[in-house]
């Protein structure tokens, strides 16, 4: 994989990024693209990362908005049955901004709202 600020290239294919490092065209997303985007940030994707990525993709397609941290925590608790999960666990996954980065790896546009 090779990268620049404007694109990532892997498997002989170049995928364009916007100024904030999100896919310029969300239709370019695939699990392999998610891995490449995360590697670009030095993040290796584990099972919990994939759960979060799938959650934000599903939420976006279901409601048309990016989820709040509060919603991600509630969904994770429901999925795992572990009521002790909180924002700390999300930040352990993606310390530089769990929802923002999950959106990037999920191929969603950068959130435009100011929440």
């Amino acid at each position: 994989m090779t990268t620049s600020d404007a694109w990532i290239e892997f498997d002989g294919r170049r995928v364009a990024l916007d100024a904030e490092g999100h896919l310029a065209n969300p239709a370019d997303w695939s699990p392999a693209v998610a891995v490449a985007l995360a590697e670009r940030d030095g993040v290796g994707l584990g099972d919990d990362h994939w759960w979060l990525i799938e959650f934000v993709r599903d939420h976006y397609h279901r409601y048309g908005t990016v989820p709040l941290m509060r919603q991600a925590i509630m969904a994770w608790r429901r999925a795992s049955g572990d009521d002790t999960i909180g924002s700390r666990e999300l930040y352990r996954l993606l310390p530089d901004g769990p929802i923002r980065l999950a959106c990037r790896y999920a191929g969603l546009p950068a959130p435009e709202s100011c929440i």
């Binding site: 279901r62 409601y63 048309g64 908005t65 989820p67 509060r70 919603q71 509630m74 969904a75």
Partner: peptide, 12 residues
């Protein structure tokens, strides 16, 4: 209603 539904689903 699609977007507002999340207020119900997540008890917001």
């Amino acid at each position: 209603a699609r977007a507002w539904q999340q207020l119900h689903d997540f008890e917001l």
